[in-house]
Design a protein around this nucleic acid. Sequence first.
DNA 1: CATAGGTGTGACCGTTCGGTAACAAATGGC
DNA 2: GCCATTTGTTACCGAACGGTCACACCTATG
Lengths: 219, 219
Amino acid sequence: MSIAVVNKNAKRGSTVKPEAESTSVPSPSSAKVAPRDRIVTTACELFRQHGIRGIGVDAIAEAASTNKMTLYRHFGSKDDLVCETLRVTSEKSDAMWADIETRFPDDARAQLGAWVTALSDCLQRESFGCDIANAAVELKEANHPAHAVIENFKILQRGKLTGLCRRTGTKEPETLADTLLLLLEGARVSRQASGLEGPAQCFQRACRNTLNAFGIGTA
Amino acid sequence: MSIAVVNKNAKRGSTVKPEAESTSVPSPSSAKVAPRDRIVTTACELFRQHGIRGIGVDAIAEAASTNKMTLYRHFGSKDDLVCETLRVTSEKSDAMWADIETRFPDDARAQLGAWVTALSDCLQRESFGCDIANAAVELKEANHPAHAVIENFKILQRGKLTGLCRRTGTKEPETLADTLLLLLEGARVSRQASGLEGPAQCFQRACRNTLNAFGIGTA
DNA sequence: CATAGGTGTGACCGTTCGGTAACAAATGGC
DNA sequence: GCCATTTGTTACCGAACGGTCACACCTATG
């Protein structure tokens, strides 16, 4: 398939510098971070960049300045590692929710506005879509262990957003929440297929319009 | 990766029946369809079901009741075959546009309503998202030949929808078109991650609401 | 009937992949 | 210093993959 293969197996040139020779991805800054954490962080990054099927465990281990054996001692299989990265990603989403909550306590409208802003900013910065939705697209095998993680995250995300919409006092909070979710997922996948100049560029405006239509003027 | 491997190499039992032994996917009904067409049709189906990276050329050839050599005589590489399937898929989209045009000639509002209905129906039936957007998610390698096909399709689709919106006489037709595209892409990816009961279920309602907000009452 | 072009067959190549075995080196708590 | 746990290293396995070769077949056309 194509030329681009990321998995450079056995790059061990020379027996001199055993130092981790600056493997592109600088995620865990090689400081005193446990190998397990380095692996998870690096895997998150590489799965995003190359897709889950597009990167091998060898390459992940090497980029994490460790080796395959250590990886397999922490995660019984690549699938396990995939699940763990999805869990970590979903925890990051939890952190964003918590941050919004603390910034605008007891102000559902402001929180909803902040949610749109935060996701819009995220869309500008990162060229890759929702890792979890991407995983769902990529992993078609039914009974893949990741599906449980994906489903769980999506249900929680939907519940949180629906609750937030309900707290704004709008009628049909479920419809509002689902509409916003469709816009978000659409923007993320569209950004991958068409870039920032594509339909994704109107994500924020579309959200504001939707909020207005539901009687929620942005703060 | 997991257990599920679709590529059953060498299933050639016995030297008796050289007949095409009913290979699950019934796409090209084994009638007098040229091998090339059978391959494309089957590849479309299998890429959708298993993902582009999730199915091998061996399995495609076998499911198309032919063999790998014939496949490679028509398509120089798997990447070529991928591009061809994306082209065929985009032609199917063209056919839908033409159908809508003939059903509601010179009635942009009705055409837009029919577009929403058609895509909504499509969403109910097919459990897989937009093949082209899925390909964009799956094929991260820059300079993959499929990216040209994807980009071309997305630009054309956006142009057509924007034109249609403009013909309805609404103000900000670009924003309306992009919003609808985000809802569509979002619904398709959400359907894969969360099923029909997820946010995708409100796709049609969200589109109607959006059309109303832009002053386009549905016919 | 002969010939040519598309097709089928099966073996094969080189590579990558996920995963394991065996053993050496470091690390840290007692 | 001792010992147990954690890492690193290297080689290896079996399978699947994309892709090719040589050769037999079959069918339509002249």
